[in-house]
Each structure stands twice: as C-alpha cells, then as structure tokens.
Design a protein around this nucleic acid. Structure first.
Lengths: 103, 103
DNA sequence: TCTATCAAGGACAATATTTGTCCAAAGGTA
DNA sequence: TACCTTTGGACAAATATTGTCCTTGATAGA
C-alpha cells in the first residue's frame, strides 16, 4: 500500500510500459521526437512545461501533480550533484516562508 | 535568540555593512567587479563556487555553510518562481533517499 | 538467416540562459 | 561643488540546454 517513489522519467516510463506502448507510439501521439521522449524517460533531457502538459494529457494525469514530480526531481538532483546534505531543504523551506512574508 | 533567516545576498550584505566596508573595498579584496558584488548581494547574479569560496574566506565563514546558504536560496527561488507548494520539498526529500539507495 | 522494431546514446547545430563588465544615473555627505 | 556609494541598464562573451538525426546493439518473429 505504500506509495512508490520514482523519478519523473521513471514514472512515465512505467505508465508507458503498462500501456504496452513503444516510445515511438507515444512520442508520435504527443508530437515530439522519439529519441527525445526516451531521453526524458531516462532523465537525460528535461521536459518543457508544454511537454509535461502533453504527457499529462496523454496519460490522463493531473498536470499540476506531474509538474510537482518534475520540480521535485530537479531539486533532488541538485542536492545530489552538489552533495549538499538533507537539511539544506529545511533551510530552503525557512527561506521560502521568509521570502513569502516580505511580499 | 532565534536565528534570523535571510537570503545568501542579504547575509553577506549584512556582514559587509557590519564591517563598515563599501562594495568597492570588498570587491577589490576578493578580486571581483564592484557591480558584480552588488548584484550578488541583491540576488541579481548567482555567485560561482569560486566566488563563494572567496567571500567565505574574506568574511571568515565556513565555506560549506555558505554554500549551503546558496543552494538553499536556489531551491527557495525555484519553488517560489514555479509557484510550487511546500510539499514539493517533501517529495524531493523522498527522491533523494530513493536515488541514494539505488547507488 | 533475414527483416522489423525498439531503445540507447553520440554528435552537433540551433537556441536560450547566464556571466562579467562598463557605464550612467541617483543619492548622500562634506 | 566634488567625491563616493549603490543601483541598474545594456550587451558581448561564455556556457548550458534543446531537439534532431543517425548509428549501434538487442530482441523477436517469420
């Protein structure tokens, strides 16, 4: 019953495979290059907002939720690549509150 | 007694002002353009790793801590500019654990 | 074996973003 | 006025990212 965690790309790959569709089939439908979709699934290229929208539509996902998956991915990769420690996120959270409070 | 939250730029501006130094004086010492330092303080330009190192050295700060301030800033700004909600950070945290666990 | 289809990934031109610098303007102070 | 400071615009140069095309290797079916 626990929710599985996976990256943005992994999630859409899983959806695609569950639907038994090839990269080409999906890419064609949403109007992007096959290779590009493959790269997005492997987190080798970042999807644009427009592409996220198209993917959400295709798989009937909530666009906002999918965007959240993408942004959280970006943050996760940043932390890992900078080898920053987890509490960096706590600091970020405080700063968000702070920045919001000062209009 | 509560620790104050401020952005990377604001923090170094405060340090500089407490030391009663002008942008020019500090910029000259660390070897960067005066205008650039001003922009960094206003979060108008992002400092490079090298610049963070020089700033930390100048103000006798721990370089790692200052880098954390910078990265948390970047994350905070991303969340704000995407208008993502706070729990995006929680999702990111789970993904970090997940990505770390898969080597 | 031959033929298709698929996914992975390299290369690269086209684009987009970011940087650092120079300059001018505005404000303050003596 | 003269000087010093900060702000911010403009912009070329440097960097990073995108989307596309193409090759390779794997798998499967006839």
């Amino acid at each position: 019953m626990s929710k599985t965690v996976a990256t943005f790309g992994e999630q859409i790959r899983i959806l695609r495979e569950e639907a038994r569709l090839s990269l080409r089939e999906v890419a064609e439908q949403i109007g992007i290059d096959t290779s590009l979709l493959g790269k997005i699934e492997r987190n080798d290229r970042q999807p644009t907002k427009e592409q996220i929208k198209l993917i959400a539509k295709f798989f009937k996902l909530d666009e906002k939720e999918l965007l959240k998956e993408f942004i959280s991915d970006q943050i996760a990769y940043k932390i890992l690549e900078e080898e920053a420690d987890l509490d960096t996120l706590k600091v970020a959270e405080m700063k968000i509150e702070y920045l919001k409070s000062k209009k």
